[in-house]
């Protein structure tokens, strides 16, 4: 599997670090994992610094996870966006949907 998922709980908040290719090959496993953690935790931060590639399947899993989190009242945020993630979000104009601050070379608008 080319996507590596690491989880650690830090100050009552689950940090989930994704590394590698967030794509169709990883989608099923990622969905399973997110499905579980969204139900179990109140606050989840997904760290994306090491995501080298994102495709539509990966993106749609993130959207579904965000939806699910909103439904369950879980705080789910994306942070440490890699360039690949930022590009994909901007391409689909989904940066606003997630509403997370994106730190890159300059401040991106909310």
């Amino acid at each position: 599997m080319s996507l590596d998922i690491q989880q650690e709980v830090c100050a009552g908040r689950l940090q989930m670090r994704l590394a590698g290719e967030l794509d169709i090959y990883a989608a099923a496993a990622l969905r399973e994992c997110l499905h579980q953690v969204v139900a179990q935790h109140h606050e989840i931060e997904i760290l994306l610094a090491d995501v080298s590639e994102v495709d539509g399947a990966g993106l749609q899993i993130l959207v579904a996870a965000k939806n699910e989190a909103l439904r369950q009242g879980t705080r789910l945020s994306l942070s440490d966006h890699s360039v690949a993630v930022v590009n994909a979000l901007q391409l689909c104009r989904l940066d606003r949907f997630f509403g997370d601050p994106i730190v890159l070379t300059k401040e991106m608008p909310e």
Binding site: A27, A57, E68, R71, L91
Partner: peptide, 20 residues
């Protein structure tokens, strides 16, 4: 551009390999 995710099922139900 607007991404439409209306067809996207809830996380538990969705098929990760289908496109919505």
């Amino acid at each position: 551009l607007v991404t439409l995710t209306d067809a996207l099922p809830a996380l538990p139900q969705m098929d990760a390999e289908s496109c919505y």
